[in-house]
Design a protein around this nucleic acid. Structure first.
Lengths: 191, 191
DNA sequence: ATAGGCATGTAAGCAGTTACATGATTTA
DNA sequence: TAAATCATGTAACTGCTTACATGCCTAT
């Protein structure tokens, strides 16, 4: 049970189909959980079989029909059980950092380009998260919302996501700049 | 090929045994790559078979002998190839964030405790990384080291790790404080 | 004595990835 | 008319986790 809890948590805020969940995992939940679309269909089938979620057919006019899912009481129970148990350490894998780690033995040019690309992606995600935050808090300012809101979980994880993307962007840019300067200098020295 | 590149990058800075690598992945590399010890032994065997690393037996007096590994030219070639290719997106999985996402449906007490625990771990890691940074730059200040150092890759990834741990600690603490306040208020209202 | 560190693995099972497969509708 | 979006899966393979297995040395 690993992906299952992330799916249950995502389904707390509404009924979603596998396809919709895939998009949520691609943009929103992606700040703390990565999952491929195919995994989600398989996981939804498993969760339904275990009685932790319930599916419902939705007929659509000019689109394929879809099945949307909600968390059952048993599903909430499973989440409570999970939350009370010990948390595993953060699981992180970043190919780009591996490249930076090895940079002194590599051609820096493609790595610099990838750092700048990642910085741009992070900035775009940050903008998205900030939009989501404004949407969640509605007319309230952040402080009042966090004090009196009924559903603050997603808001808090988005706040964490914002920090992560901000730091990512800033680290990528400063690293890229430094590597550029060093590359310029070694080239000048080599001439 | 996923873990393999992380192992190759880690072996660039010296000869290490499986056991030593496991410790490096536990503390140092852990800011951008998670790996279990058993994986490392298997991966080292595979990399040696593929000729990307070379093992050497080291006899020891009052300890079991060990095999230490170095990256071959073919290994460097593989890393260069990897660095020039497209980078996959950050792979992240954080159980603690899943719990926060679902918090409004859960008993907050254990989650608050786990947030504070994670914050303490992050602060400890930060201290470790800062020590590693001081060690790497030796007598130089950071700017000169980054300008003129021969091996800046690990320094740059440690800098990234510091940011991550700092943000983690601060997010966990502010989230825990907020959840504590909310828990106190709902308890007061319930009485 | 006992716990912890050093040192290296195997085996079974589960989870995750990649490639394949289909088909309608909408937008450029 | 081509590409993108909506919509859902299967199958084969690879990678990862958990549990098991061993044994010596050092510090308390």
């Amino acid at each position: 049970m690993a992906l299952s809890h992330a799916v249950l948590a995502a389904l707390l805020d509404g009924e979603y189909s596998g396809y919709q969940l895939a998009k949520i995992f691609d943009v929103g939940v992606s700040n703390f959980w990565y999952a491929a679309p195919q995994q989600l269909y398989a996981e939804l089938a498993r969760l339904e079989e275990d009685g932790l979620i319930r599916g419902r057919q939705v007929m659509q006019h000019r689109r394929p029909n879809k099945r949307v899912f909600t968390v059952t009481d048993a599903g909430i129970g499973e989440l409570r059980h999970f939350a009370a148990a010990a948390t595993r350490p953060l699981f992180i894998r970043d190919d780009l950092a591996v490249k930076v780690q090895a940079i002194d033995h590599l051609d820096p040019a493609p790595v610099i380009a990838q750092l700048e690309e990642r910085a741009a992606e992070a900035a775009a995600k940050l903008a998205l998260f900030e939009k989501a935050l404004r949407h969640l808090r509605g007319d309230l300012d952040e402080e009042s919302f966090l004090r009196s809101g009924e559903r603050v979980g997603p808001y808090l994880t988005y706040l964490g996501g914002c920090r992560l993307e901000q730091e990512t962007s800033s680290w990528c840019l400063s690293t890229a700049r430094l590597l550029r300067e060093r590359a310029a200098r070694t080239q000048a020295a080599g001439e």
